[in-house]
Amino acid sequence: MARRGAYAKGLAKREEILEAALRVVAEHGYRKASVREIADAVELSPAGLLHYFGSKEELFVAILAARDARDEDRVVSEDIVEGLLEIVGRNTAVPGLVQLYAQLAAEAADPEHPARAFFAHRTARLEGYAIAELEAAQRAGRIRSDLDPAWIIRSVHAMADGLQTAWLIDREIDMAADLRRFIALLEPAPAQNPAPGDAG
């Protein structure tokens, strides 16, 4: 029983750390958010904080995972496109987390980096879910049926990630609006009514 209680307390402390880390990174960005600053926010030493995660890199991967879970919990729309646009629009309020995502996405190219497994799993999970939703949208006539759903989601995913990087450089970019324009290109062309005199 004591071991179970200690485990529950450890999980609670880990959640407390992640909540504090989300705030610190959102406010200060990836490079300025030190392990010491996050540790101070939860009254731990840096070594005590890393006891819960193993390394600084694994801590930052856990922060991204916590951000994803929070975003998914907050999505109001049941439509996959509107849900994505909702998250992208919300990201403009947390540039530090956008910076963290972009940085770790680049570092995940290294097979040995802890972020590699996180991004591989994240991509497989999101794309698996999104492809099923897109296939349903194609059957309903909301998305062009001549397009491969896997290609669509890869393209939207790549555009969303690229827009985040561009937005970090130029905050005038409207990421959600640009994504909406691209997604509109995937919709079937409106049916053309025949001009008077064309029929018969």
Results as ranks from 00 to 15, higher is better:
residue 161 D to Y: 02
residue 137 A to Q: 14
residue 143 I to S: 03
residue 137 A to R: 15
residue 161 D to V: 14
residue 153 I to W: 11
residue 156 V to D: 08
residue 137 A to G: 00
residue 136 A to G: 06
residue 151 W to A: 13
residue 149 P to W: 10
residue 146 D to A: 00
residue 154 R to W: 06
residue 151 W to M: 10
residue 166 A to Y: 11
residue 162 G to D: 13
residue 134 L to I: 15
residue 156 V to Q: 07
residue 154 R to P: 02
residue 133 E to W: 02
residue 132 A to C: 00
residue 163 L to K: 10
residue 150 A to R: 15
residue 164 Q to A: 12
residue 162 G to H: 08
residue 157 H to A: 04
residue 135 E to W: 02
residue 151 W to C: 07
residue 149 P to S: 11
residue 165 T to R: 15
residue 140 A to V: 01
residue 152 I to Y: 04
residue 134 L to T: 06
residue 167 W to K: 04
residue 151 W to T: 13
residue 132 A to N: 03
residue 141 G to A: 12
residue 146 D to I: 03
residue 149 P to T: 14
residue 167 W to V: 07
residue 160 A to G: 05
residue 161 D to I: 10
residue 162 G to Y: 07
residue 143 I to C: 09
residue 163 L to D: 08
residue 144 R to G: 06
residue 149 P to V: 04
residue 165 T to I: 07
residue 132 A to P: 03
residue 168 L to W: 00
residue 144 R to V: 05
residue 147 L to R: 14
residue 148 D to K: 10
residue 139 R to E: 13
residue 149 P to G: 07
residue 134 L to M: 11
residue 141 G to P: 15
residue 158 A to S: 14
residue 135 E to V: 01
residue 150 A to T: 14
residue 132 A to R: 14
residue 154 R to H: 15
residue 133 E to N: 02
residue 134 L to Y: 01
residue 142 R to W: 03
residue 150 A to H: 09
residue 149 P to C: 12
residue 149 P to H: 10
